[in-house]
Amino acid sequence: MLAFPELFFYLFATIAVLSAVGVVVSSNPVKATLLLVLTFAACAGIWLLLRAEFLAIMLILVYVGAVMVLFLFVVMMLDINLTSLKQRVSSYLPLGVMVMLVIFAELTWVFLSDTPTSVSSDKISSENVGNTLLLGELMFTEHLYSFELAALILLVAMILALVLTLGNFNQTPSKNLDVAKQVRVSSKDRLKIIKMESEDG
């Protein structure tokens, strides 16, 4: 009879692997993205089993919640012609699968030959001091440099995403368009009330 951690591990692992295969096999990009979300959710469960509580929650909140939603938006916005993408180059299938199996077998052999065995895990997360606090302590002392760099990488992504996609694209931009000036307009600039004598009608 399997103990609870192992039972959950195998359950989550099976869900993750099956939905990963679904990502690769499915021809519909929306379905593939949703299956990837399922893979991430299952993996978050495994991470919880491995005492990485903060990261598991962050995976769901940030990665699935923001990045995968962004993916879904772009996939749906791009209006891809699905029928033309359904062709699969099936002649590569046997060779590809064989190469993958060979590499997988080698990796398994390496893992079987020397891996460390588990001892205790009190440095990661314990009942008194939570995972988040320990992560925070380490992050802001030892890894401060990397923390700042990660912020810069996000800045780079922001600049690039804006510069590459923002702007008038297929229309020639009007050179006389100054939005700030338009907003600052007041009624005096546009409307002029003239007093006229009424004509006899």
Binding site: L50, L55, L59, P116, V119, K123, S146, A150
Partner: peptide, 16 residues
């Protein structure tokens, strides 16, 4: 988890 070292989780933070 198995090496009882938190640095691995920090790296995951940055990879995410």
């Amino acid at each position: 988890y198995f090496l009882n070292d938190l640095n691995g989780q920090i790296f995951v933070f940055f990879i995410l």
